[in-house]
C-alpha cells in the first residue's frame, strides 16, 4: 500500500503551484491522510487534483458530489432494474441468479479496485448531507466497504490519494475534519496571477496582460459585489479581449471596459460594475 511514498509532487504543466501547497500535498501523501481543500471558486482546488495525477502519472478518478447523493452510490450500485428486465425477458448474457453481475462499482469502488495507486478527487463534498461524511469515516479508516447484497468486502488494493474539496457552504463535521489534513487556498495575488495567465497564454502581449490583470483586481475590489470575478472569468475575459481586433490595452487604463459581462455574471453586480467602473479610474 505504500508504494507511492517516495513520490513527490512538484507541479504540472498547466498548473501554477506555490511552495506552501506543494509541501502540504507531499506531507498528506506521506502521512496517507486525505487532504481537504477549501477556498473560493477559481482558486484551483479541482485543478490541483488533476495536476497531481498528471505529474505523478496516476489515474484520476473524480467523484462529483451531488446534493442528494448517498455514500453507497459512490461505493457501488446494485442495478435492480436491469436484473428485473433480464429475468423478465431473459435475452441477455448475464446470469440472473448471480447478483454479482449486477453490481457496478461507484467511483470510490473503482479507486479501491484499481491495480495502480490512483488519485481520488471528491469534489464539493459540502453539497451532500452530513450523513455522507459520517458514512465515509469508516471507509476512510478501514479502506474497505461491504457489498451487502452479495456479502462481500471490497478492500483497497492501493490506498488512493484522497483530495477532497469544499466550497464551505456547510461546515463539515468534526470527526470528519479530524481525519483530514486541511488547507485553505487564498485567492492568488497579482504576482501569482501573472504566472497563471502566462501558463494559459504563453504568447500573450505584455501590456495586454498587465492592464487586464490590473483592471481585474480593481474590479474585484468594487464594493457590494455578490460574486466577485475569479480566475476562470479572467482567463475568459483575456481570451475575449485578444479576439477583439478593435481592442487596445490602453482602453483599460482609460476606464473603458469591454465585455464586462464575462467578469460579472449577476445582473445586479454587472450594473454596479458599470456604474462604478468609471469612478475606479481617477
Amino acid at each position: 500500500m505504500s508504494q507511492g511514498n517516495s513520490q513527490k509532487f512538484e507541479g504540472a504543466s498547466r498548473y501554477v503551484l506555490d511552495e506552501e501547497l506543494a509541501q502540504i500535498v507531499n506531507i498528506s501523501m506521506a502521512l496517507e491522510m486525505p487532504l481537504l481543500l477549501k477556498g473560493e471558486p477559481g482558486t484551483g482546488k479541482t485543478m490541483l487534483a488533476h495536476s497531481i495525477a498528471q505529474s505523478l502519472d496516476m489515474e484520476l478518478i473524480v467523484l462529483n458530489v451531488k446534493s442528494s447523493m448517498k455514500l453507497v452510490e459512490a461505493l457501488y450500485q446494485y442495478d435492480t432494474l436491469t436484473r428485473l428486465n433480464d429475468s423478465r425477458f431473459g435475452d441477455s448474457e448475464r446470469d440472473v441468479s448471480n447478483i454479482e453481475e449486477y453490481i457496478k462499482m461507484g467511483k470510490i469502488g473503482q479507486a479501491f479496485k484499481a491495480d495502480k495507486k490512483t488519485v481520488l478527487l471528491i469534489d464539493e463534498i459540502d453539497k451532500a448531507d452530513t450523513d455522507f461524511q459520517d458514512d465515509m469515516l469508516d471507509v476512510l479508516d478501514q479502506m474497505e466497504f461491504d457489498i451487502m447484497e452479495i456479502d462481500k468486502t471490497i478492500k483497497a488494493k492501493n490506498r488512493p490519494v484522497f483530495i477532497i474539496t469544499s466550497n464551505s457552504k456547510k461546515d463539515l463535521s468534526d470527526p470528519f475534519l479530524g481525519r483530514c489534513n486541511f488547507h485553505h487556498i487564498a485567492f492568488p495575488g497579482p504576482k501569482m496571477m501573472r504566472k497563471i495567465v502566462h501558463v494559459h497564454f504563453p504568447e500573450i502581449d505584455h501590456s495586454l496582460m498587465e492592464s487586464a490583470i490590473d483592471a481585474f483586481y480593481r474590479m474585484r475590489d468594487l464594493d457590494h459585489v455578490e460574486k466577485k470575478p475569479a480566475t476562470r472569468e479572467l482567463i475568459n475575459w483575456i481570451r475575449a479581449l485578444q479576439a477583439d481586433p478593435d481592442f487596445h490595452p490602453k482602453q483599460l487604463s482609460k476606464g473603458q471596459m469591454p465585455f464586462l459581462g464575462i467578469l460579472f455574471k449577476k445582473s445586479q453586480d454587472l450594473e454596479r460594475a458599470q456604474s462604478q467602473g468609471g469612478r475606479v479610474y481617477r
Binding site: Q23, I27, S28, L31, M33, L35, K38, D171, F182
Partner: peptide, 25 residues
C-alpha cells in the same frame, strides 16, 4: 510527521503544523 523526517525547517513546520492541526481557515 516529525518522526518520518518530513519536517526539516521552521517553514516546513509552519506549513505542516497548520495543515495537520488547524481544520478551518
Amino acid at each position: 510527521a516529525l518522526e518520518m523526517g518530513l519536517i526539516n525547517s521552521t517553514g516546513d513546520f509552519y506549513t505542516s503544523a497548520r495543515t495537520i492541526l488547524v481544520k478551518s481557515e
